[in-house]
Amino acid sequence: MAVKIVHLYPDELNLYGDSGNIACIVKRLYLRGYNAEVVNVGVGENIPSFDLLFIGGGQDREMMAINKDIKRKAEALSYYIHKGNTILAICGGYQLLGEYYKMSNGSVMELTGALPFFTEGSRHRMIGNTVFSTPFGNVVGFENHSGKTYLSKDIAPLGRIIKGFGNNAEDKTEGVIFKNTFGTYAHGPVLPKNPSLADEIIKRMLGVDSLINIDDELENKCHRQLILRYT
């Protein structure tokens, strides 16, 4: 069975090895007998149908470079999110799904408005290793952002901060989850460090309740060691 993964803005949004999340998904699919096709979608290109859409992180200048284009893609993104397609968005890619980004100089960048949250820039940079609890187990990653994200009461965070800053360093929330859309500030890349989260995303993109077990002894050992180190 072929699985289609769309990588949105692979050239502009790819900080801290975020594309490693795709490599992780592809490998875990392969070990279970699935082939994956990865389609890169850049500025000026339409978003095709997909099983998983991935958006990586970027700095303010990259966000500004794609701003006009992402607004042209806003309707399609909102459609896929609310339909329940599986999406993973990291840091800047996560911010893009919200209503706007208010920079520290006061200028406002309108975004897709696909989900009811917004981000405000701050002078304090939130950087370091992070651990947060989720319904899929504790997640470990690396965060580096100056944006503070505030979720509407109508949507839920992906997790609750145990160590680190999370969405805004104020309310102990981290990321967002809405239907099958996952947003997080965790780089790393995050999925190789957290096989349970990777498998939850795979289950949703395949539309299955369970997966064939694979040998995760080393991955789980690494995950446990990182949790112990950072908490």
Rank of each mutant, 00 (worst) to 15 (best):
4 K>T: 14
8 L>A: 04
9 Y>A: 00
16 Y>Q: 05
17 G>D: 04
19 S>V: 12
21 N>M: 04
38 V>M: 02
46 N>H: 12
49 S>E: 15
50 F>R: 12
52 L>T: 11
53 L>G: 14
58 G>W: 11
63 M>W: 13
65 A>L: 14
66 I>Y: 03
70 I>E: 03
76 A>P: 10
77 L>G: 08
83 K>A: 05
89 A>H: 06
92 G>F: 07
93 G>R: 09
100 Y>F: 09
103 M>N: 12
106 G>S: 13
108 V>L: 05
109 M>N: 03
109 M>P: 01
111 L>D: 01
112 T>S: 04
113 G>A: 00
113 G>P: 00
124 H>W: 11
128 G>E: 04
137 G>N: 13
143 E>F: 11
144 N>V: 06
146 S>Y: 07
146 S>T: 14
147 G>V: 07
148 K>Q: 15
148 K>S: 13
150 Y>V: 08
153 K>Q: 07
153 K>L: 07
159 G>S: 08
160 R>I: 15
164 G>L: 03
167 N>K: 04
171 D>L: 02
173 T>G: 08
173 T>I: 06
173 T>M: 10
176 V>C: 12
176 V>W: 06
183 G>Y: 10
186 A>L: 08
187 H>I: 06
190 V>W: 03
192 P>V: 01
195 P>G: 12
206 L>E: 07
207 G>V: 06
208 V>Y: 09
209 D>R: 14
210 S>P: 02
211 L>P: 04
212 I>K: 15
213 N>G: 06
215 D>Y: 07
218 L>M: 08
218 L>E: 14
220 N>F: 00
224 R>W: 05
225 Q>W: 06
225 Q>I: 10
227 I>V: 15
